[in-house]
Design a binder for these strands. Structure first.
Ligand SMILES: [Zn+2]
Ligand SMILES: [Zn+2]
Ligand SMILES: [Zn+2]
Ligand SMILES: [Zn+2]
Lengths: 151, 151
DNA sequence: TCATTATTGCGAATGAGTCTCAACGTGATC
DNA sequence: GATCACGTTGAGACTCATTCGCAATAATGA
C-alpha cells in the first residue's frame, strides 16, 4: 500500500539538510491511506486529523503540503475554484488524470498511460526533472448542459 | 488571425440572453492579438489596457475572464503560484501544453496532438461538453537542479 | 549530552478574487 | 427612434486561502 515509506522520506529530507518530524510522517501516512478519488485541501486535512485526535497546526500543514508537492510526493491539484487540493502521487499503474465540470465541479478520474509517457518524454527532452504530469480537462457535465443555470 | 470573431461572441452571448459590450470586445481582441507564449493575469491585462488608453475596471476584467473561460474562448492557467493567467483557446494546430519549473516558474510550451485527442475522447465518452484540455507538467528545470536553493 | 538550527504553532498580515449597489447601456418592442 | 427591461459596469468594501514573523520546541550530528 505504502508506495513511499516514511523511512524513504526521512532519508530524502536528511540528504537535503532537513528533518523528519512526527507531523510530516502523519501527513504522509494520511495521504497513503486515503481512498482512491479523495483529494484533500489544507483545511480538510487539518479537520480530518483533528477528528482523529492528531492535531497539526494549519500553518504546518500548508508548509508541508507545499514541500511534499515540490518533492514529487504529493500532487497539487486545482479542481474546484478557490483552493488547492492534494493527493498522493502514484506511479504508472495508479497514475490518473481529472475531468472537471466547470459549473458544478463534479470530477471524474481516468487513467491513460500514453499521456504520462508524453509528459515524461517532454520533461526529459528539455532536461527537466519530472515531478508531476496531469491532464486537466475542463468541460460541462451532462446534468449542467441540461440545466438553465447561466455559464 | 482572429479565430473567434467579436461577431461570433456577440451572437453566442445574445443566444444566452447576455449582451455584447465594448469591454468584452476589447478583451477578446487583446487576447487575439497577443503574441504566442504570452499569458496574462487579470492585473496585467488591466495594466496593458491602461497603457493603451483603454481603461477597463479590474472588476469587469475579472468577471469577463471567468465568463470567457467558461465559454471555452479563453484558457485559465495556473502557471505560477498565486494567480491565474489566461490565453486564447486555439484549436488543433495551435493548441499547446505547458511544462513548468516549480522553483523558478520558467515555462515551456509544447504541442502534442495526441493529448488533445485523448482529452476529447474522454470528455465525449462521459457525455461532457469539452471546453479546455491542458497537460500540465510540474518539474525542476536544469538550472534549478544545479542551484543550491532548497526545494 | 550538548550545540546547532530546522521546524512548529500562533496570531497577524497579505492579496487575489468576489460582492454590493447605484449608474449606465444594450437589445427588444412598438 | 423612443421606451422599457434588465444585463453590465465601476468603485470600493469585503472575503478568506495562504503566507509571514517570531518565540518556543525538538531533530540531528558531534
Ligand atoms: Zn485524483
Ligand atoms: Zn456539472
Ligand atoms: Zn500557453
Ligand atoms: Zn527552474
Amino acid at each position: 500500500m505504502a508506495s513511499y515509506s516514511s523511512t524513504a522520506l526521512k532519508a530524502e529530507l536528511n540528504e537535503r539538510g532537513w528533518r523528519m518530524t512526527p507531523q510530516r510522517e502523519t501527513i504522509l501516512t494520511t495521504f497513503q491511506n486515503l481512498s482512491e478519488g479523495m483529494h484533500l485541501s489544507a483545511e480538510e486535512l487539518c479537520e480530518l486529523l483533528k477528528e482523529k485526535g492528531e492535531n497539526i497546526s494549519l500553518s504546518t500543514i500548508y508548509r508541508n503540503l507545499k514541500l511534499m508537492a515540490r518533492m514529487g510526493i504529493l500532487r497539487e491539484l486545482e479542481l474546484a475554484e478557490g483552493q488547492k487540493r492534494y493527493e498522493i502521487n502514484q506511479p504508472a499503474p495508479h497514475h490518473h488524470h481529472h475531468l472537471i465540470c466547470v459549473r458544478c465541479n463534479k470530477t471524474v478520474e481516468f487513467k491513460n498511460d500514453s499521456v504520462l509517457k508524453v509528459g515524461a518524454k517532454m520533461a526529459e527532452k528539455s532536461g527537466y526533472h519530472l515531478l508531476d504530469c496531469q491532464l486537466l480537462i475542463h468541460a460541462v457535465c451532462p446534468t449542467c448542459q441540461r440545466s438553465i443555470t447561466p455559464v
